[in-house]
Design a protein around this nucleic acid. Structure first.
Lengths: 233, 233
DNA sequence: AGACGATTGAAACGATTGTTTTAATCAACC
DNA sequence: GGTTGATTAAAACAATCGTTTCAATCGTCT
């Protein structure tokens, strides 16, 4: 592979990342992408095979370093903790920071990539499902192990749900971070990585270690609560 | 409008809801929709004007009752609380239950609608933005007022972010509820409205009333934390 | 210099899209 | 009972899509 052909590959990847992120996979046409990249239309099929394969390449190019950084930071945190359990907020930091960092212009990708990965994790393209599972499988194993050590009082079934809520909050914040300045009436400034990260960790740490309600400890006894309002009074 | 034409309108709306929810707006074609509805292709443009207007009609038909139910339940909760602030978990229940209820076959719409609304709130179709703001504006005003009364210690700027995380967790859970049974290795059963609702409320209530970290109380002093791991040890 | 594989360029292909058009059918009313 | 307006049916429209084809060009070797 020559050095110029690598340049066209990269230009295609950059343009595709931006347009897939802004418009989504179905609405970003190859002609838009190749025009913006300044390359010929046929270059996509020549270098990547198909539109779907281009999409895979765009996602994998960014997700893999993010997940590697997550595991690296988690390893450092474990080392630092010694034989003590890793502090919950440190675990969350290793998980969230590598992603949100990409939107703060600290690293390539930026806002379009965050919208792209957020969209594809909340609403996956069918042909990406297997690929995604393969990329995230090692993470699931490592984080569940660390979390069960840090939060020994939380049953695994509860932990599973709470991690889903954590991921949901993270992805929603990642996708909308740049809209918040406009929709928050001045309560949020753009590109405030530290602020967003701290708030998200505050929120999710509290949620993850929330005390168990009666229903959570006796799941078999939970029944439909007809009037939930009374229950909370 | 005759009674049969209303029937074709409804058949189109039902089929569109299912296919928009499953495949997304761009990938669900009008021919798919009209075939499944058993009506002629031109009926969509005749009754709704365009594909975009059909999409609007599909969303509004379900969102409006959900938001009305939210405000009704919130009103009941306020009445029940008297001059006391409404309990946080009760507020969250009025907000989340009317949506998740739709997926538990308690009400029409079901899983496709939840995927649809979840997708359009996390990744809105551009032409729906104004319509959505109009539908949700009254909610924002009411819920921020009630929440500031219940959580007087949380600054508005923090509350804004925490509500975004709450919404993100709710939408993610709503969209994936039916996948969890498959991906959770038996930790989650499908259609468990009460279980999902309780866990989500446990999580978000703890997150919303989480104690403020130093950075949250002195936002001006927050600087980029180069090595966040040490910070948590 | 010449030959060969890799890459690019321009054009066309077949399929599908949302929309429009035109005629046929239906229901209701004077 | 014939007429009018609403609704449905079938066909065609123009545009765009991803992909393929084939010749032209480039870079790199012998």
């Amino acid at each position: 592979m020559s050095i110029e052909s690598q340049a066209t590959r990269d230009r295609i990847l950059d343009a595709a990342e931006r347009l897939f992120g802004l418009n989504g996979f179905p609405c970003a046409s190859l002609r838009q992408i190749t025009d913006e990249a300044g390359v010929n239309l046929a270059a996509v099929n020549y270098h990547f095979g198909s539109k779907e394969d281009l999409y895979k390449a765009v996602l994998i190019r960014r997700i893999r370093p993010v997940n590697e950084e997550r595991l690296t930071r988690l390893g450092q945190a474990e080392q630092l903790a010694g034989d003590q359990p890793v502090p919950l907020r440190a675990i969350l930091d290793t998980f969230i920071r590598p992603l949100l960092r990409r939107a703060a212009n600290e690293l390539p990708g930026g806002m379009p990539f965050l919208r792209l990965i957020s969209r594809d994790l909340t609403d996956p393209q069918p042909f990406m499902l297997d690929e995604m599972v393969r990329e995230f499988d090692p993470l699931v194993a490592r984080y569940t192990r660390v979390l069960t050590q840090t939060l020994p009082g939380i049953p695994l079934s509860e932990l599973f749900w709470r991690m889903q809520f954590t991921i949901g909050g993270m992805l929603y914040a990642a996708a909308h971070q740049h809209d918040f300045e406009r929709t928050s009436c001045g309560l949020c400034r753009e590109n405030d990585l530290d602020g967003c990260l701290r708030r998200l960790i505050d929120f999710c740490a509290a949620g993850l270690q929330a005390p168990l309600t009666k229903a959570a400890m006796q799941p078999a006894a939970s029944t439909l609560q007809q009037n939930a309002l009374l229950h909370y009074q």
